[in-house]
Amino acid sequence: MIRLHHVYKRFAQGDEAIEALSDVSLEIAQGECVVLRGASGSGKSTLLSLIAGLAQPSSGEIRVLDREISKLPEHLSALFRRAHIGFIFQKFHLIPGLNVEENVIAPLIPANLPLHVLQEKARAKMEALCIASKAKRDVRRLSGGEQQRVAIARALINDPVLILADEPTANLDAKLSTELIEHLYMLKQSGVTLLIATHDPLFFDLAFVDRIIELKNGRIV
């Protein structure tokens, strides 16, 4: 499903070159739930970005679903993301001013599908996450938990085979974090591959987590 081979990622900061990831190699099988553990700045988010094709590695190879995503041009990596990957962000990253339904269908707007098809898909996801009753509400008027559910519904709108979650509980209280874990568990049950970057201890003892990979200063330890 996911294969990283000697991946490096360097950033330039002024005159200095910072190595965010250093010689990272790993493999994740389909349907696996993997937690990436590490302190802030250890390279977890960078790794997720590279796997999603949001950024290019400085060197090395990244294959997702047997596609070398690190070599895909921008428009193809966007299409790949739209077709196969769902992204759950730490800060939800909902689009303010749009309502719940509009946020949920946002990833598929460029697909040029009929609106009613998108609305039906969105309704199914919103119902599964118990936010269908708030479909027309501006996301700025939702609670933190509701916003997280909208973000999950949005990540699922394209029926992804891979979910990348970046610090998904960072902005949630204990109750909402438990609720989120429930949703992730459901996804795992349905065969979706999960890669969760977090330093929240809640994830370290979960029965459905297959593996924990620890990152330190950009290296797997």
């Binding site: 949001l54 428009h75 966007a78 993301r81 739209r82 962000f89 990253h93 990833p107 460029p110 949005r154």
Partner: peptide, 12 residues
């Protein structure tokens, strides 16, 4: 940035 992350192309 969000739209790109969600799968929008630069051209979109």
């Amino acid at each position: 940035g969000i739209l790109k992350a969600l799968g929008w192309r630069m051209s979109d």
